[in-house]
Amino acid sequence: MGRSSGASAFYEGIDFLRAAAVFLVLWSHGGPLVPAADHSLLYSQFFRPGFWGVTLFFSISGFLIVGQLLDMASGRRDESLRVFIYRRCLRTMPTYWLTTLLVLVFGLAAWPGALQLLANLLFVQDFAAIGSVLPVAWSLVIEVWSYLLFAGLAWGSRALAYRASRNLDWFPLLRSWDSLLLVSLVCLPLVAALIRLDWAVQGASVQEIKQSFAPQIDALAYGGMLAWLKRYQSPLFERLTRLRWLIPVCLLCMALATATVPELFAAVQQPVEARRVFWLAVVFYPCAGFLASLLLLSFWNFRYVSLFAPLAALCRALSRCSYSVYLLHVSLAAWLTSWGSGLGPFAAYLIGSILLGALGWRVLERPFTRLRYLL
């Protein structure tokens, strides 16, 4: 297929936020290792680290993936859609498969039936209403199918542009290679909001709404909009990155928005309260995606040289192995819970998750990362 000539650019601000996102998720899932009386140290009404960590991951993925597709559309990235899909599959699937099997072999999760295991390995457990072997796999289902959705839209956009170029009566926007992809980035948040609203009205649980692909199909679109802004409105993009007040405003708005949806983090098996249905479905989630993408924008000019050198090295390492850390940390937390709770087990969980993730990156991720760069 030929080696890709469009290697992804390295953005230090995004690299730092990826490390921050996985640490927020680690922090959140350490709750069982901390006595209930001390849970206020991990969470508060205004601070829900796990939710914002995952939302940041989605925004980062949307920015990078849609950015690659836009670069392919403009000719800045010499890569076919087929190679794009192969590379994304190699980045995500083999590590996930091996991690799932290792967790089962070492007894960190109960062995599922053959049908459940197959659904998990194919990322279709959400559509088949089958439980996940890895507790964090729901977010991977959203990411993987979003990649395929955006790739399909890019392919359809190219076909549409070709037909429009042969028929001058078509709307001129459709003659652009990325036209359908651009329109989809704008429409997906509206579609997702309507789906969330319908699910909530029908009595779906909070967890079903927050962990299913259909109500979350806009989760990566906000990052994709930021990628479009960078490429097609670069002067505006650069002006926005120079706003020094953007970071504190984003963090403050995140805290205030979190306090408006307490049911998103408690009693998640219950339906959304009737008085909060519209707010949660149509207002909060779009705001959350927008704020996460705005935070990416605000960290655009971040450089590691501004940090204490050992801390910068730790952030770089954590970002590099973030995928393995994300896959393995919940199983480690469950194993350490049997040792009791307290500051010691919690610290062992944080350090152990990072070390285990670093080992996973070397053994599981790096071979496939090298292989995908050969495509």
Rank of each mutant, 00 (worst) to 15 (best):
R231E: 15
G224Y: 01
A137N: 03
A192F: 05
V191S: 07
V261Y: 12
V141E: 10
L33F: 02
I195M: 07
T55D: 15
R370M: 12
G31N: 09
A334F: 13
G203Y: 06
P215S: 01
S298H: 07
P248E: 10
G75E: 03
V144L: 14
A192R: 13
D218T: 03
A309P: 11
L291F: 03
V141Y: 02
Y147I: 02
L33Q: 06
E143Y: 09
A292V: 00
L295V: 10
L108D: 13
C287K: 05
W155Q: 02
I247A: 06
V249N: 00
A204F: 08
W279E: 08
L24E: 06
L243Q: 13
E208A: 15
C315L: 13
V272W: 08
Q233I: 04
L364V: 10
W170F: 08
L181T: 11
L336W: 02
G152F: 02
R76Y: 11
G67E: 10
W335A: 14
Q125N: 10
L220A: 13
W335F: 12
F290M: 14
I130Q: 14
S61H: 04
N301P: 01
G13L: 06
L134G: 03
G342N: 09
A257W: 08
D126K: 04
C321H: 06
N120G: 12
L118I: 07
P94K: 05
L229W: 06
W199Y: 09
V249W: 00
G352L: 08
R87A: 03
F308R: 14
V249K: 00
V330I: 13
